[in-house]
């Protein structure tokens, strides 16, 4: 039992460790996206400074609080990445999914390790952005250790919610085979609905209700609100509990859908 668990852990961490290496294959892309990111970050900051020009608080948030939130959300954006849809799409198009199904390990576990590897790599690659945010746009990281801890737990839970949600969406690619539309649609929705542009508390209540009843915000707005103090630290256990419920729900529907969708390969032959 322990041996199996240790073996699984070593396999999954080996899979995870492949991802940074894959990222390094495209160095030019790293520099281009860094420049693009700095530009978008500047646009967001100046946009919010302009909004605060005539008012000191919006929905109880001061300018520096809002800008802090926006910058942190920007840095932790990788939490919402939906590579899974593209991954499924290319696997199905090239037929390599057969090889993945023929590996003597859990297919979903393998993908989770891959996505986690992608997340960690992307977060490390965000470090230059964080430096820019601190020195140019005045970002202030919290110094309180328990706030960071609450954030990290919530971030991992939120990432897991998105993993299962994306797993559910990715199953559609078994039927459509075309992924570009779905991928771009989900990318766009993630950007707006994860709370990367506007803090949730500023949204009109009915919009906030919608956003909180779909999973996107769980991965970004929820943990980043904890980190910035918009959500008080005392609410952290409740936040985690809700996220665990999200995980359970998403895990069940995504697993059921996958079981049906994979029959496209295992019964109809792809």
């Amino acid at each position: 039992m322990i041996r199996t668990a240790r073996r699984n852990l070593s396999v999954y961490s080996a899979i995870l460790a492949m991802i940074p290496k894959q990222f390094m294959a495209y160095q030019l892309w790293f520099w281009i996206s860094l420049v693009l990111s700095v530009i978008s970050m500047a646009i967001l900051v100046y946009f919010w400074r302009a909004i605060y020009a005539n008012t000191s608080t919006i929905s109880g948030l001061a300018q520096n609080q809002t800008i802090n939130y926006i910058l942190l959300a920007f840095i932790f954006m990788p939490l919402t990445s939906n590579d899974l849809i593209w991954e499924f799409g290319s696997n199905l198009r090239e037929g390599t999914i057969i090889h993945h199904l023929l590996r003597p390990i859990n297919f979903q576990g393998m993908n989770y390790a891959q996505m986690l590897g992608g997340l960690l790599t992307r977060l490390i690659l965000q470090i230059p952005m964080a430096v820019v945010a601190v020195f140019i746009f005045g970002l202030r990281f919290p110094t309180d250790l328990s706030t960071w801890l609450a954030f990290l737990v919530s971030a991992l839970l939120g990432f897991t919610v998105m993993f299962f949600f994306n797993w559910f969406l990715a199953c559609f690619t078994f039927y459509t085979t075309e992924i570009w539309g779905l991928g771009v649609l989900v990318d766009g929705m993630t950007f707006f609905l994860s709370g990367a542009l506007v803090p949730l508390v500023m949204m009109p209540e009915w919009i906030r209700n919608i956003v909180l009843s779909i999973p996107f915000a769980q991965a970004l707005a929820v943990p980043v609100s904890l980190l910035t103090g918009i959500t008080p630290l005392s609410d952290a256990p409740l936040v985690w509990f809700i996220q665990v419920l999200w995980i359970l729900g998403m895990w069940i529907i995504s697993t059921l859908f996958f079981r049906v969708a994979v029959r496209k390969i295992t019964v109809q032959g792809g």
């Binding site: 899979i15 492949m18 894959q22 037929g95 390599t96």
Partner: peptide, 29 residues
């Protein structure tokens, strides 16, 4: 079992061959 499908690869496209082999050896224990 071992499988080769002549038209689809089981190797990691962007990585050096040795990386793929190391991982496969790990997966198959």
């Amino acid at each position: 079992i071992g499988v080769v499908f002549g038209q689809r690869t089981q190797l990691w496209w962007d990585l050096a061959l040795i990386e793929s082999l190391n991982l496969i050896a790990k997966i198959y224990d």
